[in-house]
Design a binder for these strands. Structure first.
Lengths: 339, 339
DNA sequence: TTAGTATGCTTAACCGTTTAAGCAATTTTT
DNA sequence: AAAAATTGCTTAAACGGTTAAGCATACTAA
């Protein structure tokens, strides 16, 4: 259990100052006018002693940690963990590391996470913000901390974000149901005013209108994130028992999984009795007896763009805020009633 | 964009030394004999100035970061992201934060991750080790870095680990297939010698023997982690086209998902023509037309125990290594041919 | 020659904490 | 009343790096 070797150790080992070693290890031999043979000697010594720089010390001095804080609703949700994977890879390419936290869509937890990450001096944040957390984000911005929002955002905030066009994606999905002859189209969403949900609901309603279908407020069923299973089962009863709709649009893959289980339990046949479309992907969609049509977001693009934006911001390459709209496409399969 | 307020700032604000503030902020007022009213004054000032300690500076001084490095095969795999979530929560309870990395079951990537995390002075590691990485783990141990292995381990290494009894879990699954009258039982596994795979394969063979079924080597189909989709589809051909087995045991949920897709494509009926059991869970299993029987590992237990062990080790509460076996149970549903 | 410049290195301050050691002033003990 | 102990604070070094500034010595140019 040898002690870690420090800069000073390698300096001492060849009888030079620590400064010199620092310059060489950071490839600043030119600027610092380090002699060629001395540079070689230092590199050799560093290799021999297996010197590994202490990044904590470096961080303290530099005021930067090369760490990105990723805050999502729940890292165990495949939607977010897939993004996390991309973020990890992209960050690594630039020598960054990522530290993650799950907010459970809870403003207080998110605030705690931001605090904890801040005291650890993360250089930047990538956040899928919980509801009512605009002040937290605003606070980061006014402290000049680079942050990019993913999946949802706050339109009145001047902040970088990456998301799909939820309004139109939603509209296209519902439009497809209408084209397939469905006339009584319900939607299962979360009871939150977060931008992605609001847009999806608006897109749904707009598509109905466009299709000359009069929206009925009982068609829009909302469940809370925290009690999804209980509420979905219970609240869908009103729509499905007896069956008062002929199509159902899920705002999220979790909602779809919960909803489809309820539908199965009631013995409703998809798509004959009820056509179905969901947002996001799931292995489950492939194995449902009537493969589920879904709105596919490119998680790769979301992750890549988020890292790109946040690092650009960090390096002051961008001044004014930019929001990136990534593509979403409808993957049409049997569940929506036709192809 | 105010500068961060430091210990010195609050010290200066009330005209005392930084040391005093440090003592108070760390609740060491007793040991350091800080006056009662002074302590109050300092706390008030800290609150007023909204002082947040710089954890990087603290880390440098203390040589500890209150960070756990979590290395898994792929954070986007629900199996690992579920564990990650538990680890996150348990770590947070103790004031720890977790930084993650995906090895893709690749020894070199894992080594890089360990190096990167080490230079960042993570206090401890939780690792689902890739194949042939015992030396890396041994190295950590001999450097006295706390580490616990999850899911797989190296029997010849003196290291804490948390896993299920793969041999018996596997055996029970196969035994169930035999009891259901299946006589030609195949297995789809990864082509790796990692302990969990080896044990699952051995358990499978042992159960066959126990059931007086002579194992045929062509029954054991192995695919590589890196090319799972191609290889599973291709290699299953030999078993399924024509159908030479009446049951198939999947060593992993990813293998099951890939395998079931192939089975679907070939129009093989589960469980009539082919009974099926898998390891791990998946939303997909619930939606398969014949709900899939699976070996359920308690991911919660794995995560909790891993954090507990590694923090105990960190605090020197345990001296000799301990391996925790968490429970696994067979969740029996239609796919295995009977209940 | 002599200033001017380039070269190769060292010194020392600093980042924000922690904590052992020290120092008065006050209180207690004898 | 003197010695000893306690109280309440300050000083300063340390953690492991970075980097501006300084200082010889050697080289170049006039």
């Amino acid at each position: 259990m040898e002690k870690k070797v420090s800069l000073k150790d390698v300096a001492k080992h060849i009888g030079v100052s620590a400064a010199l070693v620092s310059y060489v290890m950071n490839g600043k031999e030119k600027e610092a006018r380090v002699g060629l043979d001395m540079a070689k000697k230092i590199k050799a010594a560093a290799a021999e002693l297996n010197y590994q720089p202490n990044l904590i010390a470096k961080s303290l001095k530099m005021g930067t940690t090369r760490t990105i804080g990723l805050i999502v609703a729940d890292i165990s949700n495949p939607f977010f963990s897939s993004i996390a994977r991309i973020v990890e890879d992209e960050a690594k390419k630039q020598g960054y590391v990522v530290i993650f936290g799950s907010s459970d869509e809870n403003a207080e937890k998110q605030s705690d996470l931001i605090d904890v990450f801040s005291t650890r001096l993360v250089d930047a944040f990538i956040i899928a913000p919980a509801a009512n957390t605009a002040p937290q984000i605003q606070n980061l911005i006014s402290r000049a901390v680079p942050v990019v929002l993913i999946d949802r955002f706050f339109s009145w905030l001047n902040v970088d974000c990456v998301h799909i066009d939820n309004y139109n994606a939603s509209g296209k999905a519902v439009e497809r149901l209408i084209r397939n002859g469905r006339k009584k189209i319900g939607m299962l969403a979360y009871d939150t005013a977060q931008s992605h949900m609001e847009e999806r609901k608006l897109g749904y309603k707009a598509a109905l209108k466009e299709g000359n279908i009069r929206f009925k407020k009982e068609w829009l069923v909302e469940a809370s994130y925290q009690h999804i299973n209980e509420e979905v089962t219970e609240k869908l009863q009103h729509l499905l028992n007896p069956l008062t709709i002929d199509a159902l649009f899920f705002a999220t893959n979790s909602l779809a999984v919960a909803g489809l289980k309820a539908i199965n339990k009631m013995g409703i046949k998809v798509p004959e009795q009820l056509a179905v479309i969901s947002f996001d992907e799931s292995d489950a969609f492939d194995f449902f007896y009537s493969p589920v049509t879904y709105v596919s977001q490119s998680l790769t693009d979301i992750g890549k763009e988020a890292v790109k934006l946040v690092l650009n911001r960090l390096n002051n390459k961008i001044k004014k805020n930019s929001s990136v709209i990534v593509e979403a496409k409808l993957v049409v399969r049997e569940s929506c009633g036709s192809r």
